[in-house]
């Protein structure tokens, strides 16, 4: 499903040039639940952003579902991102001015889903995540775990092929974190491809693959 070959990502600092990612080869199969691990600055998040089409590599090739992403134009890449990717962040990144319901609904708005369809899909997810009672609250009125649940719901509402998560439990208490990981496991069992970045061995244990990184390489 995803094939990365010799991926490079560099940065410039004055006259110096440094590597964030260097010679990364990686294949993710449909239905994988992979965890990218490694110390701070190893390039985990950068790799995740490239896979999620939020960032572009400076070198190498990226094939997604048989399409050469690296050769595509910005607009087309955005379309692919919109269709296939769902993102969960460590800091939740919900929109403060929108209610729970509206936060979850937003991705559907950008995909021009019809109103009736939107309602039923959001309702379905709210129900599944036991959030129906909280649908009219604003993010600030929720606990961190609840916020992250909304974050996950928002990431999967448009039925992406890949769910990308950057330290999804990093800001959460242990029990809340476990709940999110259970949810990931469930989604995985339903066939969702998941790639997460995590420091925690315990979280990694929920998946079926570990990718260890160090200094921009995969070990």
């Amino acid at each position: 499903m995803i094939q990365l070959k010799n991926i490079e990502r560099t940065y410039r600092n004055g006259l110096q040039r440094g590597w964030i990612l260097r010679g990364v080869d990686l294949e993710i199969k449909e239905g994988d639940f992979a965890t990218i691990m490694g110390p701070s600055g190893a390039g985990k998040s950068s790799l995740l952003n490239i896979i999620g089409l939020l960032d572009q590599p400076d070198g190498g090739t990226y094939e997604l579902l048989g399409q050469s992403v690296h050769a595509l134009r910005e607009r087309k890449r955005h379309e692919l991102h919109k269709e296939h990717m769902g993102f969960v962040f460590q800091a939740y990144h919900l929109i403060d001015d929108l209610t729970v319901y509206e936060n979850i609904e937003t991705p559907l708005l950008y995909r021009k889903v019809k109103s009736a369809d939107r309602k039923s899909r959001v309702a379905e997810l709210l129900d599944r995540f036991n959030m129906v009672a909280k649908k009219d609250l604003f993010p600030a009125q929720l606990s961190g775990g609840q916020q992250q649940l909304v974050g996950v719901a928002r990431a999967i509402i448009h039925k992406p092929r890949v769910l990308l998560a950057d330290e999804p439990t990093g800001n959460l208490h242990r029990s809340q974190g476990e709940k999110i990981m259970e949810l990931f496991k469930e989604l995985h069992q339903e066939g969702m491809t998941i790639i997460q970045v995590s420091h925690s061995e315990k979280n990694a244990a929920y998946g079926n693959r570990i990718i260890e990184m160090e200094d921009g390489h995969i070990r």
Binding site: L54, H78, H81, K82, F87, H93, Y110, R111, A155, H158
Partner: peptide, 8 residues
């Protein structure tokens, strides 16, 4: 956030 969840 809006861009990540798919806005143009």
């Amino acid at each position: 956030v809006r861009k990540v969840v798919g806005s143009n």
